[in-house]
Design a protein around this nucleic acid. Structure first.
Lengths: 339, 339
DNA sequence: TTGTATGCGTTATCAC
DNA sequence: GTGATAACGCATACAA
């Protein structure tokens, strides 16, 4: 059995409660006994038992993370390591640990979340994605459990604390950039329409077209969670239209990479024959050939602010609902050209 | 306050201990009372408190994960989401939760591990990488805490349970493939020499050369944790040699991608003027242009087996030390050509 | 400033 | 089969 607070108390000649107070650095303990107790802790190699502490004060110092289903393609996106890094940094600063959901399907994940919450394993939860009709959000709301969403909630935007980009504006700007370059036939290649981010970016794209008086065509809109096969299909579909697009707004760097390669195989030059703007600006964007013009959404900050906000909320449940918008910026590289 | 075992006991008209036995599905409780208790649990919406359970039976059902420092480039490698998926799958099967280390530097991470262990937050630990002179391993050994390493431990290979590929043989085979194609000037581009995997692959590479009676040249060995700038430098360095290599063994797909692009920029055709074999076979390998010939190391299995093995070890501490080797296989795509 | 007593929600060891 | 009761290790209200 490990060394406990009692052992320390004994050899420091104080009561266990005193040791507890020293750990909490209570101001009402004399420096003298503090020192004595600390020496005893040192001597015995004492380390507080977090589980016992959690049980006593009903708080775990753990944040639960809900990732997309691991069976999901989304999981492979470089977006996740980077948000994780942001979350991890903020959590570490405030001495919080991170616990991940496991599960391959949405239902398994929901079960996992229920375990975390009801089992009192975590103090709060961060959802790393936002999808339509999300059961998890509904559950957490019902339970009044502290949580923060990364991305825009599908419903009740005003009532749910979230950290997001202004994806509508970002997509609008990206599209406008293409339009400014003279493109009139601009297509949109998005990820799963189940993801709110896809919806927002699509709306921004539409808005830009409308403002520029460019007709919106259904054939120009493609949704796929593809990487390789899908990319090929999507691209050849677009190119076989009577009026193929001259520019693409692509929802994600990873997709853009796939498209870039498919175009390369088809002998279509980027940016000479096709311009591309994508989103996220992960490392891949720099390393692609040609390097991708991509909208930097500041993924690290997305995670960092989410964790920070959640921790505030956990510590003070009266904190009001917040919406935090992380700024974006377009990084121009070499995939866009005048038309 | 949430509903506890006592509440259930009360309305089921039994003692709390009986409820506990029902939860554990003890055989010495009559089906009749079991049913009654379960109905009560249902009615009240009871969920067991994991923290309390952990305290009582000294086990958390949580596995700790030690990732590389988040400041580290390694963190960005697509390797991690994939091992995570493997670990997550195995953990989920056995009802274990996952807790991640946080921290930007090696020391911060060591502190975190100490918290996990001493704070009794986790039942066992998986190290997702293996580096030379690792303090964490030494600490875990000293504490006799159950852990498994993914990769080969730098020291005491026989005494540490680990899950690894035969990286020596994998690199040897990759190099031999190049040699079989007629290449005599084969260079090695590896990641951090602090990583044991790099060392193993380098040794395999050397062995292949020696076996084929090809002299080993220091100028042909490059180590860098680069992605973009580094890649450029490394490549131009190699190419400016009097006898530049005609083929490259690259330790990682991500690096290979960088090199591919640098070569492309320099107007050097792959595979016509330069052949490349890389490792890991992540999605990137397929999506690169040309698609990479890459050694598939079965990352998912690496994670899956690690978690499975750790759980066995946690449940039965007398389990002997194990070394599990996950098979690899070379996936030939389009980056190699006869010389 | 410090000690005592009690509770946190379970599990486990006795009894009966 | 089931019920008291004592841990598990710590925090805290209340005393002193």
């Amino acid at each position: 059995m490990a060394v406990t607070i009692k052992d320390v108390a004994k050899i420091a000649n104080v009561a266990p409660s005193t040791v507890s107070r020293v750990i909490a650095n209570s101001p009402r303990i004399s420096e003298k006994t503090k020192k004595r107790v600390r020496e005893a802790m040192e001597e015995l190699g004492y380390h507080p038992n977090f589980i016992a502490r959690s049980l006593a004060n009903q708080t775990t110092q753990v944040i639960g993370l809900v990732m997309p289903a691991s069976a999901d393609k989304t999981f492979q996106n470089p977006f996740f390591p980077e948000v994780l890094r942001g979350i991890s940094t903020a959590a570490h600063e405030k001495q919080y640990a991170l616990q991940m959901s496991t599960g391959e399907t949405a239902n398994e994940i929901l079960d996992g979340v229920m375990q975390m919450v009801q089992g009192r394993r975590v103090d709060g939860i961060i959802l790393l994605y936002s999808a339509v009709e999300d059961k998890i959000i509904k559950y957490l709301q019902k339970e009044c459990f502290p949580f923060v969403v990364i991305g825009k909630p599908f419903e009740q935007v005003e009532e749910i604390t979230h950290v997001d980009n202004d994806n509508y504006r970002a997509a609008k700007e990206a599209t406008e950039h293409l339009i400014d370059l003279g493109h009139k036939r601009v297509a949109f290649v998005g990820g799963s329409i189940q993801l709110v981010v896809t919806i927002d970016r699509l709306l921004g794209y539409e808005k830009a077209l409308r403002t520029a008086d460019i007709p919106y065509k259904d054939e120009y809109i493609i949704h796929e969670e593809f990487l390789k096969e899908g990319g090929q299909e999507a691209v050849s579909e677009l190119l076989s239209l009577e009026e193929p697009p001259t520019a693409l707004v692509v929802a994600d760097d990873l997709m853009a990479l796939g498209i870039l390669n498919t175009l390369h195989d088809m002998g279509i030059d980027v940016p000479e024959q096709m311009s591309i703007v994508s989103f996220n600006n992960v490392l891949l964007a720099e390393v692609a050939r040609p390097p991708l013009t991509s909208v930097d959404i500041n993924i690290f900050q997305l995670g960092f602010q989410a964790a920070k906000t959640l921790i505030q909320k956990v510590k003070d449940p009266t904190e009001p609902t917040k919406r935090i918008i992380i700024p974006h910026s377009m990084v121009k590289r070499q995939t866009c050209k005048e038309y």
